[in-house]
Design a protein around this nucleic acid. Structure first.
Lengths: 143, 143
DNA sequence: GTTGTTATTGATATTCATTATCAGTATAAT
DNA sequence: ATTATACTGATAATGAATATCAATAACAAC
């Protein structure tokens, strides 16, 4: 299976909403896609600034929201920590085991759970679009 | 099965932490336990104020955190909505189907999913303590 | 009961992520 | 080229959550 071109998805979303293409958006989507996952707005802003000094924090924030809206990023918010954005494209959906002590997280996946969730929604006449499963506890090193 | 006395749990927690008993704490835990679930700090503050005018917002907030800490409340935070606190005592754990349009939520429960989560954690050498499963989508009326 | 220590309260200030504002600029259709 | 309008970047505003602090209250020790 070929990974869909994330950048194309983003540009398509922009166009479909009647928004405009700008070099800032290009820079931001490129930086986001090539960076390691789980970035905060602040962190992406730092990266983008190194490439193109002068891009505003608000611009990065706004566009990160667009990236999330078009499905290329998931939001992870743990307690009062800053929101983090993780790329979804080319990756299967996964849930998180979050350590309450060291704040690390492990990505996990279970098809059976996914299927049960579908059925659970169905049984309640609910159309499921996305979901978030977070298991909090202690990791191998902290338990 | 007899529901454990939530108020005793709270008072025990206070004592165990070397904190002190106050009439404000009593008022707040009483109001919280007798209120319908899913309250925001603001809403509980309004209720408490009606019983004892003069109790400060910060006091309600602080004590709601203690109530959460001792396991009597779960936190629900949907998007940018205000954090809500829902009583856990005397109720089985449940997950949420959250409507993206009307913001309503349906409480659901599935033992099979719970069990799979346990196993998932185990497989990763992770000690699960609590978890949060939220399925976002469209409810019966909004789909 | 008195005293001393210290947690608590309530009012307010602070913090901090996120969103809104807005003038100037850039984009893209005609 | 013209024109309408979305975008940017700087900054202000928002708002929930937390911190601060002086006055007060709880409670253990005596």
């Amino acid at each position: 299976m070929i990974t869909p071109n994330a950048k194309e998805i983003f540009r398509g979303y922009i166009k479909a909403k009647g928004l405009r293409h700008t070099w800032q958006r290009d820079t931001i989507i490129d930086a986001f896609l090539s960076a390691a996952g789980h970035l905060t707005v602040e962190e992406l802003f730092q990266i983008v600034t190194r490439i193109h000094p002068g891009i505003g924090y608000a611009t990065v924030h706004r566009n990160l929201n667009l990236i999330r809206e078009c499905g290329l990023a998931d939001e992870i918010k743990i307690g009062n920590e800053k929101t983090r954005f993780e790329p979804t494209c080319g990756r299967t959906h996964h849930d998180h085991l979050i350590c309450l002590k060291c704040k690390c997280f492990i990505e996990v996946n279970n098809n059976q759970i996914e299927q049960l969730q579908e059925r659970l929604a169905e049984a309640n006449d609910f159309l499921p679009l996305r979901h978030k499963l977070e298991i909090y506890g202690l990791c191998k090193n902290c338990r």
